[in-house]
Amino acid sequence: MKILVCISNVPDTTSKINFIDENRAFDNQGVTFVINPNDEFGLTRAIWFQKKESATVTVASVGDASCEAILRKCLAIGADNAVRIDAEAKDGFYVAAHLAAYAEKEAFDLIITGRESIDYNGGMVGGILATLLKIPYLANCISLEKEGDAIHLQREIDGGKEILKGTLPLVIGAQKGLVEEKDLIIPNMRGIMQARQKSLTVLTPTESNPSSSISTFQKPPAKGPVKLVEANNIDLLIDLLQNEANAL
């Protein structure tokens, strides 16, 4: 089984979000970048298939050289090889089009994306990629098992889950639940050393245009101070929620 895991390089979850260049660009000064958490769940599942079913795992990012550190981390975690498509990730459609052009040539059995990136939050690359490749997409994937040629899947829906059956090839949107938190792999020294020997191929971008562009960023307005209510005055809290906040 050939697996592709699409990796988005995102600011660490504790990062303060600021903008520069008259609010036209993200300020990455002092920001640590990490593997998008949803992609990490997907990568962990892919490594499981590599260990149990001798699948090969390729990781790919669309981005400039700055995302190579994260691809190296994926190699240290256990991916077999990495690909960087040398184009600025302008929008989700643009990213999906580049990944599709690459995946078309490689004939992967399973393509794993994250449910969404935690910076752009498009929740779109997986669905568009699958549609461009004319193969099915399962969003919010919380379980993926293989039994011979049959694939058993689960999708989280509002208030429950769907149980599905399918075949490869397939694209999924990985999220928490697909693997357990404790299964996440922290690269060890051996992994980091081995990663240096593995290939990280840089591909030139194909002809493609983004479908949108961002004009400006904004930060949410500052919030007023909290109204504190004494623990022995619950009636006041209820009154405020009812009559001031209109929330009950």
């Binding site: 979000i17 929008d91 949108s212 562009s213 961002i214 004009s215 400006t216 904004q218 949410p220």
Partner: peptide, 20 residues
């Protein structure tokens, strides 16, 4: 078409313009 959308998991917003 230009819209305002949330990004950075609700830590910010962006204004996005469609090219189509």
């Amino acid at each position: 078409l230009e819209v305002k959308r949330s990004c950075f998991t609700n830590k910010a917003f962006n204004q996005s313009i469609s090219h189509k």
